[in-house]
Structure formats: structure tokens, C-alpha cells
């Protein structure tokens, strides 16, 4: 049963990492336009690959 002593914290840590990543994605606005995000993946954005002028 001693295995539990590091397995439970390991599970919590991994879950916590996922939770932190989710919080970050919400904060950076990735959930603000769910309809647009679904469509954008299909867009041909080759012209954006050109070097920006700044």
C-alpha cells in the first residue's frame, strides 16, 4: 500500500498540470470564439508566412 503514497500525488500532479494548461488556454482567449476556431483550421494562410515588416 506504500505505492499509494507516491501514486496519488503523481496522479494529482498530472491532473493539476492539465488543469493549469486549461486555465491558461481560457485566459489567453482561446475559448472566446469557438465557432471561428473550428473554421480557421481550414483556411489557407500561406500569405501570413511571408516575413512581417517589423
Amino acid at each position: 500500500m506504500t505505492a499509494l503514497l507516491f501514486l496519488i500525488p503523481a496522479a494529482l500532479l498530472l491532473g493539476g498540470l492539465g488543469l493549469a494548461a486549461f486555465f491558461w488556454s481560457v485566459k489567453s482567449g482561446q475559448y472566446d470564439d469557438l465557432d471561428g476556431a473550428a473554421e480557421r483550421i481550414l483556411l489557407d494562410d500561406d500569405e501570413e508566412a511571408e516575413p512581417a515588416d517589423h
Binding site: A11, G15, F22, F23, V26, Y31
Partner: peptide, 18 residues
Amino acid sequence: EGRFLLRCMAVAGFAMAN
């Protein structure tokens, strides 16, 4: 408000799974 609900949902989901 939407972001707040999403955060609450994520925390509840995390807690539920663990």
C-alpha cells in the same frame, strides 16, 4: 462570465476525476 463558468467546470471536472 463565460470564462468564469469554464474555469469552474474545469475545476469540478478535475476534482471529480481524481
